[in-house]
Design a protein around this nucleic acid. Structure first.
Lengths: 367, 367
DNA sequence: CTGAAAGCGCTAACAA
DNA sequence: TTGTTAGCGCTTTCAG
């Protein structure tokens, strides 16, 4: 089926292109009969509008995608954003445009920013809901007015959002459990250091780990689950206390990104490499702890890939009418010492982030 | 800085838009002085081409990409092909077209098929050289006549090919060594079962493993390196002999795809889960051996991702003038029991391969 | 209700 | 070496 445009349709229908346009866009001033006739023909010949032409004619991108994620740099969200932008860049000639309205931090001024983006003329909104509850009305409203909402990394599962893209937190925890369990002798005691358990993500990771650790380590025990927060000093202290209280600990799973205080604590106890430490995510500060064996493995959420994928879902939906899956989980990456050099995340990259990240072609992941 | 087009530049430079176009694109038939003057103005006013207009004007670029890889189904190459096709599909509206000339098996009739594709009017050729030596003249000839050649999965490093996309075999071996070494006690003895060592890929994996195993397992020893071939019976027999001869073996690394005979041998010795088995790749037959613990982990080359990436490199090169990197290595995936459900590779998928794989959005990988 | 025609910014073919 | 012009496919305005 070769490409047909409105001219061809006009010819087939014996009308002018103006009429075809009116039919195709449900505009006024056209009789119901001709409209139906034209729509039928368009359907039959598989008409697909040329978005470049539309964009050119309208003087603006044919498709606008709003993006509302934190702007924090050298960081998880930075990579997420780069994934989205790098991918969007590729579809520019097709008339895809990004309207980027960042928040300063996850959840900060979120409501306002989202409301702001929604006031623009967008077809899709991609966001990381830091405070899902608060956003539900806005999200629902958007979906009502035919804006597809895609949540990345974190979900607003109570809302009417079309899609969630991210890693399955439960599976992350389970993978950590397997890595830990298989590395340790039977009957080993391990502990989890997590973030606020009221956050769905942390709870699921912790649960996944707790449930599956005994399956992978015969008679293994999860001795403690410690709730740390983002504060470094607190993390260090809690971890130290843990290590002191349970000298028999053989493994530690840190389910939040904030693993540095834990690394330092382990090191300060002279336990680098003795206590198996499995962390989450990946950033430059972690490199030395891989090198000295403090970190055994890290489970990486691949934000760049998440960004790419959410954008691709949007584009495939808009351009090819692909249905949006209600969720899209990607496989977490196991990062170890030997593969560390492959990850640009650990390199302290400088200014030209986007530039370089568009070189970084791809980071895709199977369903 | 509001948007300026070539008209505005032409006005500023007191020339016609044709001249501006020539300057901007380094075309012939323009004096060096005016070119510089125009470029300077363009720079000053921050000229950004309107990509939609360009796309429209150039019409669908009608880019043809030749693909010459084996057609074997339910298999590694099958996924590679699907990655290419799924990705190509996405760029159809940009005028990308695939000419698929499969070989029956890796290396079979390769020369003829490649010659055949090259006779078509293609701008890029993507292939898996099964017999690199033999193809060198053809590849060089292609590059000479301005056809960019991209090798996927296997390389023809002696040739003038533009790019190689694949996993770093040495790193695969090294990762296997780390997984193995860290899982075992010091002084453990392990062995490698590999394919023909004259194949570069097998040699590099084996070397990577051999060199790094002692680093990750104190005083660990690689007791034996066994060269098996594709034959199942031979594999089973050699592995059995190995296990019999070295009852102290604690680990086994299979660096070829053909791991099933090894799995069976291990199982028949009642060693499932006792001998740490690390395999390569992923296909449906392996699932049960993950479940009973025979396979400890597998290192997956992600053919789907390789396919996607090679196509994207081609597209980015053709459409956005991105330079082709001389090589693009992707991180191998560690597949373990807990993450197995995430991999569609192990599911015996039926007919509609391409259909489903286009749903499978992405599998990208960082540089 | 429908048709005709003018552009959107750029490329490319042809004139000068 | 430079200028002119005809589209690319679509939206939009203005006539019928």
């Amino acid at each position: 089926m070769k490409k047909v445009g409105i001219h061809e349709i006009a010819r087939l229908a014996q009308v002018s292109i103006g009429t075809v346009d009116r039919a195709l866009h449900g505009r006024k001033r056209i009789s119901e009969t001709t409209r139906r006739r034209i729509l039928e023909i368009a359907e039959r010949v598989g008409y697909k509008p040329n978005l470049a032409a539309r964009a050119l004619s309208q003087g603006q991108a044919a498709v606008q995608i709003g993006v509302c994620i934190p702007r924090e740099i050298h960081n998880y969200f930075d990579q997420l954003r780069n994934g989205i932008l790098a991918e969007a860049h590729r579809f520019e000639p097709l008339g895809i445009e990004i309207l980027y309205h960042p928040t300063e931090r996850l959840g900060e001024n979120e409501r306002e920013r989202v409301a702001q983006v929604l006031r623009e003329d967008i077809q899709v909104l991609i966001l990381t809901p830091g405070n899902p509850q608060q956003l539900i009305p806005l999200i629902n409203e958007a979906e009502q007015s035919n804006i597809r909402v895609i949540c990345v990394d974190t979900d607003a599962s109570q809302s009417a959002r079309s899609t969630m893209v991210g890693v399955d937190a439960g599976m992350s925890g389970r993978l950590a459990a397997e890595l830990m369990g298989k590395f340790l002798r039977p009957r080993s005691e391990v502990a989890v250091i997590t973030g606020m358990l009221q956050t769905e993500d942390h709870r699921n990771k912790t649960e996944g780990f707790r449930l599956f650790f005994p399956r992978y380590c015969a008679n293994g025990q999860v001795t403690a689950i410690v709730e740390a927060h983002d504060d470094d000093a607190e993390g260090f202290q809690k971890c130290s206390a843990l290590l002191k209280k349970h000298p028999s600990l053989k493994g530690l799973y840190v389910s939040t990104a904030n693993c540095l205080p834990v690394c330092r604590a382990i090191r300060s106890f002279g336990l680098a490499g003795k206590v198996r430490l499995i962390t989450t995510d990946l950033f430059p500060g972690m490199a030395p702890f891989f090198d000295d064996g403090t970190i055994f493995a890290s489970i990486h959420g691949r934000p760049f890939a998440q960004g790419q994928i959410s954008l691709r879902l949007a584009v495939d939906h808009l351009l090819h009418q692909h249905p949006l899956p209600s969720s899209y989980f990607l496989t977490p990456q196991v990062v170890m010492h030997s593969t560390l050099p492959m990850f640009s995340e650990i390199r302290e990259s400088s200014a030209s982030e986007i530039k370089s990240s568009s070189l970084r072609l791809a980071d895709l992941e199977q369903v």
